[in-house]
Amino acid sequence: MNDTVLHDLAALDGALYAAVASTDTPTLDAGLRRLSEAADHSKINLSIAAALTLLPGRSRRAGLAGAAAVALASASANLLGKQLVRRPRPDREAARVVTGRQVPMPTSASFPSGHTAAAFALATAVGSSLPAAAAPLGLLACAVGYSRVHTGVHYPADVVAGALLGTACATLTLALQNRVVAAHGRGHRMGHSSLGP
C-alpha cells in the first residue's frame, strides 16, 4: 500500500471523526459517555462472562471462553498493537467535540481500540456457543466501539481494527478450547477402556 493510499485513508478517517464530532446529539451524549466509561478495564465484558460461568453446561463453557478471549484481546491491543503502531490520540479540542460527551482522554496510543477489541472478543466467543446471545452482545460491542468515537478518544479506524482484533482473538480462543475439550474427551475414553476386562 503506497503512501498516497495511506494518506487518503487517513484523511477519510479524520473526516469521519470530525463528522461525528460536529453532529449535535444531546439525547445520546450522556448514555454513550456512560457506556464508554462502563467499558473501562473490560468491566462490562468480564461481568457478563463471570455471570455465565455461574450457570451450568454450555453457558459456563461460553463464559470461560468469553473471559479468555477478552483477556487475550485486551493484551493484544494494549501490549502489542498500541506499542507497534503508536498512533496519537485525536485532537478532541480542534475537532470541537462537545464537552458533555467527553470521557477522560487515555494516555495510551490510539490504535487499535482496546475497548472495542474486548467487546467483540466477548460477543464472538460467547455468541458462538450461545447463539441467542450473539445479536445482543454484537449490538453491545458495536455500541461500545461507536461510543469511543463519539466521546472523542478514538478515530473510526481504531475501532474497526479493534473489532477485527477482538474477533480474531475469540476465534483463536475457541479453537484452543475445542482442542482442550477434544483432548480431555479422548483421555476420558482411554481411561475407561483401560478399566475394561
Rank of each mutant, 00 (worst) to 15 (best):
P104T: 12
Q83R: 15
A157P: 04
L140K: 00
L16Y: 12
R101Y: 05
A15Y: 10
M190D: 14
E37T: 13
C169P: 00
V153A: 06
T173I: 08
R148I: 12
S108F: 03
E37P: 03
A65D: 15
G66V: 07
G114E: 02
V180G: 06
A77G: 03
A134E: 14
V85W: 05
A38L: 12
K43F: 14
H150C: 08
D158K: 03
R33D: 08
Y17N: 07
A133R: 04
G66Y: 01
R186M: 12
A121P: 05
T171H: 03
A183H: 08
P88Q: 15
N2K: 08
L72S: 10
S128A: 15
V20L: 07
D91N: 15
K82Q: 10
R86M: 02
V159E: 09
D29P: 06
T124F: 07
H41Q: 12
L165Q: 04
R189M: 08
R58Y: 01
S76Q: 05
A65Q: 03
A30T: 15
L140V: 11
L52H: 06
R96V: 07
N2H: 10
A77L: 03
L72M: 04
V159Q: 02
I48F: 01
Q102Y: 02
M190E: 14
N78S: 08
I44W: 05
R189Q: 12
S22K: 05
G191D: 14
G100I: 05
D13R: 06
S59V: 01
S193L: 10
L72H: 06
A141G: 13
S76P: 04
A38Q: 07
P156S: 05
A132E: 15
A77E: 00
Q177H: 13
H115V: 09
N178E: 15
M190A: 15
A19R: 14
V97N: 02
G166F: 11
L122T: 07
A182N: 06
A143C: 08
P156L: 04
P156Y: 00
D13K: 02
L172Q: 06
A95E: 12
G138Q: 02
C142I: 03
V160P: 00
S194W: 12
L72P: 00
G31Q: 09
A143T: 01
L55M: 10
S76L: 12
A19E: 13
I48L: 07
S47I: 06
R58F: 05
M105D: 00
A49M: 09
V149Y: 12
A175C: 11
I44C: 01
R148G: 08
D29C: 02
P106L: 09
S129G: 15
H150K: 07
R33M: 12
V70N: 03
A65W: 04
G81L: 02
A141C: 11
R58E: 15
L79I: 00
L165M: 11
K82W: 04
T27E: 11
C142G: 03
P131T: 04
